[in-house]
Design a protein around this nucleic acid. Structure first.
Ligand SMILES: [Mn+2]
Ligand SMILES: [Mn+2]
Ligand SMILES: [Zn+2]
Ligand SMILES: [Zn+2]
Lengths: 140, 140
DNA sequence: TTTATTTTGCAACAAAGTTGCATCTGTGTA
DNA sequence: TACACAGATGCAACTTTGTTGCAAAATAAA
């Protein structure tokens, strides 16, 4: 785990610091997406709020995490796969928000469908966010 | 115009007040979506910030407007079609954000495609937000 | 170890959103 | 038309969220 984290940071030419390690740990420890608030809570008193903002910003720029738009317009972040890098994201998968348990996950195996746009429109990015009940919440 | 506004409010059992009329006017005056800030600016000094928040909240609940999630996680609102009502929204169309002019529009004629979810997942709502260049910005 | 470069925490601030309450206004009724 | 009442508004105070500048601390390289 610790080696994986070091590797991610090194690969992106980022120095290995307490906050970066801790925040990556949080992402790797669980399968879903995290809000800024979650991170602030889970890191406890350990880091300054500003540091968390700046760390997430750096991770975003480096293509280590991506942000997820949600229907209630809260900001969520999740780990990117290997093919994202500095300046170029390729997170063309669907995001799922469970209305029961509140978790949000990347459905990496579900790619966003092709959509026919009206004449004149050119797309650069398509975001799909699906609300519903996740697989843990439907069986019961 | 004014009659249309009155009708919308009456149909939803809302009293006809200055802020509600003015805000509906703003939505009807243009084809796109509006951010809270846009509305505050365009209503000038006329209404309190809190009133704008509360008016938008009421319109959301009544199904007069819907909110649009965006990639940069800002909050946008746009008029619903007739089939939305109190407690039930049916805005299953695609939203388009132009990266050039900044406008966001509802593509009412583009319905969201069916998406195969992994076993166990049940969807209730699918949001599609597309970034790119709008039809006004591609011709030039 | 020393040094140069980043990163961090702090303070101060700005923007966004919420809540309680007194006052005002729109609407239905007499 | 006048009245009463529910609901809408404005204001103040507050919370939450996000930003910026700068000095101190930590990291990575020499
Ligand atoms: Mn994702
Ligand atoms: Mn729409
Ligand atoms: Zn769930
Ligand atoms: Zn445009």
């Amino acid at each position: 785990m610790q080696e994986a984290i070091q590797e991610i940071l090194k690969k992106n030419q980022l120095s290995v610091t307490g906050s970066r390690v801790k925040i990556l740990e949080l992402f790797l420890d669980q399968p879903g997406a995290l809000a800024h608030g979650d991170i602030e809570r889970k890191t406890g008193e350990k880091f300054d709020r500003v540091t968390v903002y700046r760390t997430l910003q750096v991770f975003l720029n480096k293509g280590i995490i991506h942000s997820i738009p949600t229907a209630d317009n809260s900001v969520l972040y999740a780990l990117c796969k290997d093919d994202c890098g500095e300046g170029h994201h390729h997170d063309n998968h669907v995001h799922f928000v469970c209305d029961k348990c509140g978790n949000t996950v990347c459905l990496d195996e579900v790619t966003v469908p092709a959509i026919r746009l009206p004449r004149g429109y050119k797309f650069s990015q398509v975001q799909v966010v699906i609300n519903g009940k996740c697989k843990d919440c439907t069986r019961e």
